[in-house]
């Protein structure tokens, strides 16, 4: 009994190649799912505001459906469910010399479809937050629909969209652990299998938690940088110096309290 400090320190300071590869898998999975989810979110978000009832209805249905199903169920559904019914079976693919396993692909797609539904609502909200006067001004200057969407609506909506999107990504970084269930060798799965052989479950889970904390902390800083840049119209003086910047980016944000789920 007791806490094995030596084991803990050695895992923390020298996690080993296997763990680092798993960590890479976690990050790549999150980034790919986010990118794909963002594409889905933008398309469906605009679709929700379409002039055409059918488009609005289809997009609304997608959001309603996906937001009502647990991610875990979605992942298993995409990996095992579709294959069991004989609809579609993921198989390993080699891209630029990297093997993307079937379970990895299913995880990315499942997470992206899940994220897309939430992002669609965020995007729609961002578009609707653009004031009518801004659009009228653009029209009065002779801009067409495409021009004013690209130059006025999108940049302004982006500033509303980015903070909640950042929170979503933070959430997604941790949600990737669910992919362990369908056999993706990410950090949670690796930790599980290591604790089965070493019985150092407690120490390993703390190392794992610290790893997730590290990921979300790095993301917080990046998100802060993006937001500060997008808010340059509000501030004349950005924080200067490394410490000041780090403190500024790590400060608690109002919108963090509004984090959904």
């Amino acid at each position: 009994m007791g806490f094995d400090w030596t084991f803990f320190w050695s895992r923390l300071t020298d996690p080993g190649d296997l763990y680092l590869i798993a960590l890479g898998r976690t990050v790549v999975m999150a980034v790919l799912a986010m990118a794909l989810g963002l594409v889905i979110g933008v398309v469906v978000g605009f679709g929700r505001l379409s002039r055409f009832l059918v488009v609005r209805a289809v997009c609304g249905f997608y959001i309603w459906l996906i937001r009502g199903i647990p991610v875990l169920v979605l992942l298993v559904f995409f990996f095992s469910g579709l294959a069991a019914a004989g609809f579609f079976r993921f198989s390993d693919v080699v891209v630029f010399g990297f093997t993307l396993s079937a379970s990895f692909q299913a995880a990315v797609i499942g997470l992206a479809i899940h994220e897309g539904a939430y992002m669609a609502e965020i995007v729609r909200n961002g578009i609707q937050a653009v004031q009518r006067g801004q659009i009228e001004a653009a029209k009065s200057l002779g801009m067409g629909t495409f021009q004013l969407t690209r130059r006025i609506i999108l940049p302004q909506a982006t500033r509303v969209i980015v903070p909640p999107l950042g929170n979503d990504f933070n959430h997604l970084l941790k949600t990737t652990s669910l992919a362990s269930v369908i056999g993706v060798q990410e950090i949670f799965q690796l930790t599980e299998s290591m604790s089965a052989t070493t019985f150092k479950t407690f120490e390993l889970l703390i190392v794992l938690s610290i790893t997730y904390l590290l990921l979300t902390t790095i993301w917080n800083v990046i998100q802060g940088m993006i937001e500060t840049r997008l808010r340059r119209h509000e501030r004349d003086d950005g924080p200067s110096g490394f410490i000041e910047k780090a403190l500024f980016y790590l400060r608690p944000r109002v919108d963090a309290a509004l984090e959904r789920r």
Binding site: Q131, E136, L141
Partner: peptide, 20 residues
């Protein structure tokens, strides 16, 4: 319609400058 607006300038009560 978009073309017709080019030759007509408008100034609004709320200014409506593009804030970004």
């Amino acid at each position: 319609v978009v073309e017709q607006r080019r030759n007509i300038g408008m100034v609004f009560q709320q200014f409506n400058l593009f804030w970004h």
